[in-house]
Design a protein around this nucleic acid. Sequence first.
RNA 1: CGGGGCGUAGCGUAGCUCGGUUCAACGCACGUGCUUUGGGAGCACGAGAUCGCCGGUUCGAAUCCGGCCGCCCCGACCA
Length: 562
Amino acid sequence: MRLSQLFVRTLRDDPAEAEMPSHRLLLRAGYVRQLGSGIYSLLPLGQRVAQRITQIIREEMDAIGGQELLMPVVHPADIWRESGRYDAVGPEMARFKDRGGRDMVLAMTHEEVVADLLRDVIRSYRQLPVQLYHFQTKFRDEPRSRGGLIRVREFTMKDAYSCDIDAAGLDVSYQAQYGAYARIFERIGLQTIAVSADVGMMGGTEAHEFMLLNPAGEDTLVLCDQCGYAANQQVAKVRRPKPLVEGLRDIEEVETPGTATIADLAAFLGIPASETAKAIFYMAEDGRLVTAIVRGDDEVNEAKLANAVAGGGLRPAREEEIRAAGMEPGYASPVGVHSTFVVVDELAAASTNLVAGANKPGYHLRNVNLDRDYVPDRITDIAIAREGDPCPNCGSPVILRNGIEVGNIFKLGTKYTEALGATYLGEDGVEHPIVMGSYGIGIGRNMACIVEAHHDEKGIIWPEAVAPYAAHLVAMGANRDARVTEIADALHAHSIVTGNEILYDDRDESPGVKLTDAELLGMPRILTVSPRSLAAGGIEVTDRATGERAIRSVDEVRDSLG
RNA sequence: CGGGGCGUAGCGUAGCUCGGUUCAACGCACGUGCUUUGGGAGCACGAGAUCGCCGGUUCGAAUCCGGCCGCCCCGACCA
């Protein structure tokens, strides 16, 4: 490809809106352009990278028996009503009516369509298992897009769906996907960590997310470098040492003016925050007011709490809702209150003689104890893991790191197949719902993550496997030696013939401009043809990653392009 | 949705406090010509902006006021 013909323009200055390296460089080097918030065009260079990533994923999906198909972006609302998600999913799903007034949606994901296909095609256990996948546009009207291609609203995703006769089959499919993911990320140059993850609104029993460590990552990971424990903070278990149990002392009211926060309360009473009980309130989707109790030095993990409540999503309760239940915000506790769903963290439950709210302004209670003073509905781990906590596996201190999710795998189970009636007739002559798994990789996000992991101050450094072109040929000083253009043209022509076309900077630009652009664009090798290189014996080959330069003969370079 | 910031030429910005013949400017990029050619070249000429939009105040608005829209960052949110 001749650079003089390529639809691209590189920018000398960083666009003001770009902060992350990948966003900055992809814009400056002309791989992408923004159309609106979270909506991007891939320019020809970007599209080539996307296609190379896509092809690698395709190969690995095929290698584990995946079958590629293509499902629509526009869905009738009906199948989303069948699964219950038409109402369960909020405004992030775009909805509209077609000309006939029928409700339609833009696909955020394709479980419903897969289940619909399964109920149409699958009759017998003999047709299972099967793994389906496609590359398709998703639209999710995110409340906030960010970080260039890291979090966008419209994007292409590889989503795969495994379909098995039972949980054991799902385990096999899940493991196959896990292995394929490891190979995919290895091949495209991303060092990832697979962490246990929350199943969230997808439902299901188990999930992993493949994470790229990155300071700008939106997820917090809890990692143990001793035993390899790795979990998203949303699900990371907390196993802190149990406190010493004291004898229960009598409850006692104490005046504590102006102590609506744990920090103020602990300071006022001169006790550590760990000797207090913190009450946080949420409304569950089913209308229950949830009281979460953690020790004063802990924070509530909302994902864990939501799973403990099992009443759908949670939102913070409003003050009037808390008062309506008989409690006083800032001085609240479940003591003497019976109308809320009380979830107590294990550590708080094991702690004795805590200070808790008295449910009147300016007063707390000393020596509050579980069971004696209030009745829990559930006792479970709802605290958020902290840096230095003992690893739930081996007890070594864990570390916290930010990560970007580059892929995920979910064991869905039968949620969608039951809802849509996708069943097979088993060997036992009985109808069973098909057991599904779901496996996603965002193409654009992966492209951005590769840049995050592979760049320097000069520009992008594409790994060979995903580079838009294997080499960037720069012709310089053509007017002083006719052989320069001759040789460069011939090399470029040769690369077309071999099917491994290189990028050829044939522009009438100064050497500085050409070399700077070559480094910005990031092909793995830069081939320089100039009177100087010819005098030295041929073509200068620069390794973009290491900066190493070597003179190679023209023949040698030509052969390397084959 | 809360908090903060920003919208002036393709990109980056100045001007805005203090309204008016340096108010529409500067650098880069762009076009033409000549020179230049191994690290973002030089000279000359040139094209390109109804200063995000609408309304108001005023003799006069990029500048002041109100409303709206868009974009970015933090948080909430995130199959």
